[in-house]
Amino acid sequence: MNARSVCCAPLWRTVLFGASMFLGGYLSVAVFPVWLAVVFFSSGLLMAVFLQRRTLARQRAGFATLIADVERGGPGHLQHRLSVDTLPAQFKELALACNDLFARLDQSITRTLQFSAVASHELRTPLTILRGEVEIALRQPGLSEDIQALLVSNLEEIQRMSRIIEDLLLLSKGDVGEMPLRKESLELNELLTEIFSQAAVLGDAKDISVSFSPFEGQVPYRGDGLRLRQMFLNLLANAVNYTDAGGTVDMSLIVEDRNAMIVIRDTGIGMKSEHLPHIFDRFYRIDKEKNCGDGGSGLGLSIVKWVVDAHGGTISVTSEYGKGTAFAVTLPLSSS
């Protein structure tokens, strides 16, 4: 134990340490033999060190508990509050400050999400009116080719904006809990076969082979059929969109350990590794020019992630640039 440790220790422990030194020195010259004085001195020193180490251990344990509690209140769990009563006194003020920060962040994010939902809803009506007016104008006789091309371009942009608004409204309502799942009894082989048929049409238009390998036997599942169709069709459409003519898109259904795993694999252009952590972020687009050209909004995979999370599942992606990409969706069968 050095001088700095003694200075940093609580006062009573420093007194104990000093008293042991004084007592040992006094007894060594006054009454007891030197060896006995050394024993007294060493005992006092060891006791001070032991008490100091035990206090530090308690503080480290309290700090570790506080950190673990803070991590449970991360993104998506801002309603969580730290347990103040179980913490050491020196950490309670910090825990109360964290709780106050969580509360203010939660209120701010909730207001932002509510604004997004309201704004998206209010924008639907003017866009619907604009689309109707442009469609009426296109039916008028005697339009020049230039005017007709201009109106068609306007209609395409209005339709694209409408899709973005619908996607934003879906995500915003999902964030604030206003988009509950409408669960029903489904059979996954049957559901995926229907979706595969739609994706095969998209593949034929680009000379891409689309295949589906079902699970041998029925796979009953309880989920929102509309949202599941939207999710898997989105993944398949992306696979077709980013695969060149002559390529392949394969979908397979596997059941393991009471989980259904649906893997969608393509031989497309793939993605570089730096993009993989961000592909589920809203408005994140790898090829901005390509996405703008085909009407992509950067929200498709965000919706996919929301649907998977809402069903208690997980989604992962692996990709090799220039060779292809694979998405794996895992849905728990036990909860359904």
Rank of each mutant, 00 (worst) to 15 (best):
E166K: 14
D250I: 06
Y26R: 09
E93H: 09
V210P: 01
R160T: 15
S42H: 08
K290E: 07
V263N: 05
S108V: 07
V263G: 00
T65Q: 13
Q114E: 08
I254N: 03
V263A: 15
R229M: 04
P126W: 00
D106L: 05
D250P: 00
D287N: 15
N238G: 12
L186F: 06
I269H: 11
V176T: 15
S297H: 11
G313Y: 03
G270I: 06
S153A: 15
F115H: 12
A37Q: 07
R111L: 08
F32T: 15
R282V: 05
A119I: 06
I67M: 08
N2T: 15
I67C: 09
Q140N: 09
L169N: 10
P332E: 03
S185R: 14
L105H: 09
G296V: 00
M179I: 04
E289Q: 10
A137L: 06
T318Y: 09
A89R: 13
G298H: 14
C8K: 12
G322R: 00
L236N: 10
S162E: 14
T128Q: 07
F232Y: 14
M179H: 13
V34P: 08
E133R: 10
V49L: 04
N189V: 04
D266Q: 04
D224L: 10
L155D: 06
R81D: 02
E166C: 02
F40W: 12
T314M: 07
T128N: 09
P126L: 05
F212Y: 13
V176Q: 00
T65I: 02
T65N: 13
E122R: 11
D175C: 12
E71L: 15
R72T: 11
N234W: 06
R124F: 07
A239M: 02
E216Y: 09
C98Q: 11
Y284I: 12
R53Q: 11
H80S: 03
L236V: 07
M179C: 13
V201Q: 11
R222C: 14
T325H: 12
L150N: 13
I208T: 05
V255A: 06
R285V: 05
R131H: 09
S185V: 10
G73Q: 07
M261N: 11
V31N: 12
S144F: 01
M161A: 14
S42P: 01
A245F: 01
L27D: 05
T110W: 02
D294F: 11
N234L: 05
P10W: 04
S43M: 14
F32Y: 11
A239L: 07
N291F: 08
P126S: 05
K173G: 08
L186H: 03
M251L: 11
G298Y: 03
E187H: 10
V134C: 06
Q52N: 13
R222S: 13
G174F: 01
L192M: 15
V84S: 01
A57I: 05
E93A: 13
S116H: 09
L235I: 14
V263I: 15
A48K: 00
T193P: 00
L82W: 00
L188V: 06
I67F: 04
R163Q: 12
H80K: 05
R258F: 10
D294C: 10
D100M: 06
G293S: 13
V39N: 01
E71D: 15
G76W: 02
N2D: 14
L188E: 00
V84T: 12
V39F: 02
V249P: 01
S153M: 07
